[in-house]
Write a protein that binds this DNA or RNA. Structure first.
Length: 167
DNA sequence: ATCGTCATATGAA
DNA sequence: TTCATATGACGAT
C-alpha cells in the first residue's frame, strides 16, 4: 500500500466538518470531524475532476448525515486496501439505506462464510465511512458492534435511517 | 440473560 | 510466527 499524493478538502455539515482526501483515482479517505484534522487547509490547485468528485461527495455526505439516500457517489479509491478488504467494502455498498446486515451475512455473501472476524477487521479498516456504509453492519444478535468513528456516530446514523439496535 | 470457551480468517508487527 | 479482532455458535450457569 503506497501513499499517493492526495488533496484534502473540507465538507461542512450540521454535524461538523468532514475532511475528504482525493487521489488521482478518486475519493481515498473521509474523516469524521475532529479537532486534530481541522488544520488541513492545504488546498492545492485542484483539477476539475477532483472538484466534481468533491461536489458529489459533499452532497452524499450531507444526505447520509440527514438519513437520506446518498445518490451518485464519486469514484472511490480503495487501493489502500487488500484484495479481501476491497471485496468486503464493495459488498457493503449494496446495503440499502435503512437496512442492516450482520458480519456473518457479509462473510457469507462473499463466499467466505468462516471469515466473520476478518470482515469485522475489514470494516474497521474502511477508509471511507458513510459512503461505504460500515455503520449498517451489526453483530448477529442485532447488537451494535463497533465503529471506527465512535459508537455514538454509528448509533446516530442508524437512528437517522430508522434502524433500532439492542443496547 | 450472561459468561466462558473455542473455532477460524485476515492483517500487522 | 505471534498477536489482536467491530464475530459467532454452543454449553453451563
Amino acid at each position: 500500500m503506497k501513499t499517493r499524493p492526495t488533496v484534502a478538502l473540507t465538507i461542512r455539515t450540521s454535524a461538523g466538518i468532514f475532511v475528504a482526501h482525493y487521489s488521482d483515482q478518486g475519493l481515498a479517505a473521509l474523516n469524521f470531524p475532529s479537532r486534530s484534522t481541522t488544520k488541513t487547509k492545504a488546498t492545492r490547485p485542484t483539477g476539475s475532476s477532483i472538484r466534481s468528485w468533491h461536489a458529489l461527495t459533499t452532497r452524499a455526505v450531507k444526505a447520509i448525515v440527514a438519513g437520506k439516500v446518498p445518490g451518485e457517489l464519486p469514484p472511490l479509491d480503495v487501493s489502500s486496501g487488500t484484495e479481501f478488504q476491497q471485496r468486503v467494502w464493495e459488498e457493503l455498498l449494496w446495503i440499502p439505506c435503512g437496512e442492516t446486515r450482520s458480519y456473518g451475512e457479509i462473510a457469507r455473501s462473499i463466499r467466505k462464510p468462516k471469515s466473520v472476524r476478518a470482515v469485522g477487521g475489514a470494516c474497521g479498516a474502511n477508509p471511507i465511512p458513510l459512503l461505504i456504509p460500515c455503520h449498517r453492519v451489526l453483530a448477529a444478535n442485532r447488537k451494535i458492534g463497533g465503529f471506527s468513528g465512535g459508537l455514538d456516530w454509528k448509533k446516530r446514523l442508524l437512528q437517522r435511517e430508522g434502524v433500532t439496535v439492542e443496547e
